[in-house]
Design a protein around this nucleic acid. Structure first.
Lengths: 337, 337
DNA sequence: TTGTAAGCGTTATCAA
DNA sequence: TTGATAACGCTTACAA
């Protein structure tokens, strides 16, 4: 193993000087810096992370506490993960996955073990017990999501209330007089803000705009539920129903089922989904969508976390991203004609 | 922070004794052990991982080098990941994700930094440069996949050649005289063994059984390609075509497209897919499938890695799991009648 | 069966 | 601007 001492010997300086150079202190003269860097390159030196951490520095790991189980909608999780990994990488540290199922214990464990510098917390609940524990642990932490619990942890989220309003507005624009919200069975409106926005704020907004609405929950990727919705719609044609879908997990099957039932999206019936742009574009009928900006969300969260770690500035307590509707064929023009 | 010294003080023993107890030495008397464990519980002591690693012990991290990008089929990756996380958890260590795109550099970095105890290597190529580098790094490593490169690293994989044969056999059983293999565009038969099994061994086996075959590549989850296959099939009814699908990524859309084209699976046309059992079962027509045992595969790999880390036994060099076909409605009886 | 003491590679403090 | 030295918390010979 190449140590700082080896580098120091080769460069003809002391271990301390090497440490200064590595950590970017500017108390070192340029020539010395160059000397040291040359030796670092030559020997292929990489600081030993455990040693660095033990000596009080940073470990170079950030934890990502996220629930991954069979009900996980991986299509939604993936952009978060990949964006976190990429950004973390560019900060020269690594990602540790902490299974969200373990709750606060899993987080406490890695924290006590001194293995993570900071935490990205997913699956935030409207009431979330973990938050106060984390605060008392003094662990730099950014939430991705929205809570109603009082907390001083900074958070990043997408404005789901706005998303739902945009969906409804666009459906009404093409003539809908009744909205059907379709979501996963696993979305708990009592626990998750996005589910609440969809199942409570959505219908409320419909009422305020003078139209009726109802909500259907579908078991993840299962055909039966989807077909039952579609066949119902079949009989509702006269009622000018518009569809608002919350998750890509069911979108493609839904659109497939529509086709099978000879319902043409954007003509017989309008539909607006919450999903990534490319996913919406790739459907047989391109779907008007609102991209939930998962990557931007996570990217922001990571950067806030790093700004906390570097301790320079006070982080913004709440960052709310507002995504915008992208109109495509499924609401291109007046429907029900 | 609770240190081993604190525990020692409370338990009335020395730091050393605490260390022995924690690390499961059996040189310590039962009563002392109990004393110590009581103190550990009471204080909520967790060993400081950096310190432990620095002192020569294990870091408690295993790296998972896996490519995650926009072409990643998350449906296939997920069971691997979740099974690794769960099993790693039970070995009291954590998972670090190493972006596979970085190639050997990413792995070298974490290794030089002394942050991982072992490595699970995914996306193994038939020719894979990384293997020799990893061997020379003396990093305990288990491959998940199959290579043709010479290496002493142990590997775990599923017998894809057998999978393809089982698919073909079942299709022939119900009357197919021509097989269409359908796969992702991104599957590179020159690089990945599973792709090769499908695009080379499969057609070869068809020939040996006296029937013809062809292969179609579909861009991930894109309708256009899928519909072109389905509409082709429409015109081929007389030719007794059977469908073999390699990845769940396109299965549900394929079956949806079949319905839309009024082709009834298991009656007009038989189909056998490689996908998880529950996924096959959840299709509108339950699909005869071969579960690629992703979770068993990863579980085995993790356990082999830990047996290497504990240094007890020489690991088995190659573990090949053979999955079995589960017959469902899509090949329940003679087709084309 | 338990304790003493050396060392792991780094950073931080302080002196030169 | 640089160098010596003391932590950091743990493991592991070796001694008792």
């Amino acid at each position: 193993m190449v140590t700082a001492q080896d580098v120091a010997d080769l460069a003809g300086v002391s271990r301390t000087t090497v440490s200064y150079v590595i950590n970017g202190s500017n108390l070192i003269s340029e020539p010395t810096k160059k000397q040291v860097m040359k030796a670092v390159k030559k020997l292929g030196y990489h600081p030993n992370l455990p040693a660095r951490a033990l000596a009080g520095g940073k470990m170079g790991f950030i934890g990502v506490a996220v629930r991954i189980d069979s009900s996980t909608n991986i299509v939604e999780l993936y952009p978060h993960l990949s964006s976190i990994i990429a950004e973390t990488e560019s900060h020269n540290s690594n990602v540790i996955l902490i299974p969200g199922q373990e709750g606060i214990e899993g987080i406490e464990k890695v924290t006590r073990q001194a293995t993570i510098d900071g935490l990205l917390l997913f699956d935030i609940g409207l009431k979330d017990d973990r938050l106060s524990s984390i605060e008392s642990m003094n662990l730099p932490c950014v939430m991705v999501g929205t809570t109603e619990s009082t907390t001083t942890l900074p958070s990043v989220d997408v404005d789901y209330a706005s998303i739902v309003r945009q969906q409804i507005d666009d459906l009404i624009r093409v003539g809908s007089q009744e909205i059907i919200f379709v979501d996963n069975k696993s979305s708990d409106a009592n626990y998750y803000n996005f589910a609440k926005a969809f199942s409570i704020d959505g219908p409320r907004y419909c009422t305020s705009r003078g139209i009726s609405s109802s909500t259907r929950y579908i078991e993840n990727r299962h055909w039966q539920g989807i077909e039952s919705v579609t066949s119902d719609i079949q009989t509702w044609k006269g009622r000018k129903v518009g569809i608002a879908i919350r998750t890509p997990a069911i979108l493609d099957l839904m659109t497939a089922s529509m086709r099978f039932n000879n319902l043409e999206l954007g003509k017989d019936i309008p539909l607006v989904a919450v999903c990534a742009d490319d996913f919406a574009q790739a459907q047989p009928t391109p779907i008007t969508n609102i991209d939930p900006l998962a990557d931007a969300c996570s990217l922001t969260a990571v950067n806030i976390l790093y700004s906390m770690l570097s301790g320079k500035e006070q982080p913004q307590l709440r960052t709310l991203l507002t995504p915008h509707l992208q109109r495509r064929k499924s609401t291109a023009s007046k429907c029900y004609q």
